[in-house]
Design a binder for these strands. Sequence first.
DNA 1: GTGCAATCTCAACCTAACTTGAGGTCAAGC
DNA 2: GCTTGACCTCAAGTTAGGTTGAGATTGCAC
Lengths: 154, 154
Amino acid sequence: MTAAQPRRLKPTDLIPIGEIARRTGLSVSAIRFYEDKGLIEPVRSGGNQRRFLRSDIRRLSFILIAQRLGLSLGEIEAELARLPQGRTPDVRDWAAISRTIRARIEGRIAELERTRDRLDGCIGCGCLSLEHCAIWNPQDALADEGPGPRKLLA
Amino acid sequence: MTAAQPRRLKPTDLIPIGEIARRTGLSVSAIRFYEDKGLIEPVRSGGNQRRFLRSDIRRLSFILIAQRLGLSLGEIEAELARLPQGRTPDVRDWAAISRTIRARIEGRIAELERTRDRLDGCIGCGCLSLEHCAIWNPQDALADEGPGPRKLLA
DNA sequence: GTGCAATCTCAACCTAACTTGAGGTCAAGC
DNA sequence: GCTTGACCTCAAGTTAGGTTGAGATTGCAC
């Protein structure tokens, strides 16, 4: 039972942290940090070292992409929680998550286009007060992304 | 000389911090923080209280907009440094700065569109490895915005 | 069976962007 | 002239997202 694996589960499918770091471009410490935050759950070797699956590369890549879009690690965790437990996520699982992300991208693009147009309009109109100008509308903080003063965005 | 001002420099043109906070949506502490960082320089009343000009509202509004675009306070300070010293900035001064900001917006939009298209392509192709997929390309970190792991973005 | 690079844990540190609190002053209304 | 709310300064605290360092193991190669 222990020799000549029939379904060929190669030991190379278990990747140590250094290699997963190299492959994703993340630092080793960042990956450990993400595990700490519950974003990823590697298995452990006999000697307590982390061992990652190939599908974890996709998981980590997703984290990177989502971060670029302005999601916090908490929000990313929420997205990842939608992946199936116990089995390796397949194309459809990832596609479901992608739809959420895609919507976010669209929204962000729309917001930027709005800001751009308003910026043009505001400079063009020369109102110089911004107070009653379209661009300066704190209520319109529909994308809660980016740092910004907490009071305004909260 | 002290009575009946000829050019009508109304005292209401000197705004206390509470009112400027109310008008911009910023917190009082955030405004003081920005002064500390050199982003704004209110004058002082006889009793050492801050007094803002109306044009400072525009300055603070600009800070908010720029932050939403992912600029750090340091970068914003650099932009604001291009405004004239000693005189109140006029339409053309602000227009010059707007052009930089506009370019940034365009760039960010382009990047998001690229990410969106790649996301579709990647999920569609089912490669599931991301390693050799277009979307997973750490070299393409052309927008150094958002938090993200320092090693990758540095 | 030994060497040495890669890992491990845990605690401390870091930057950005603010907030909070203590203790004291200013100014406008009655 | 006194009260009360708005302001002042300065120091310390907070959150997110990691990094750094010490001291101890592991595990692959020779």
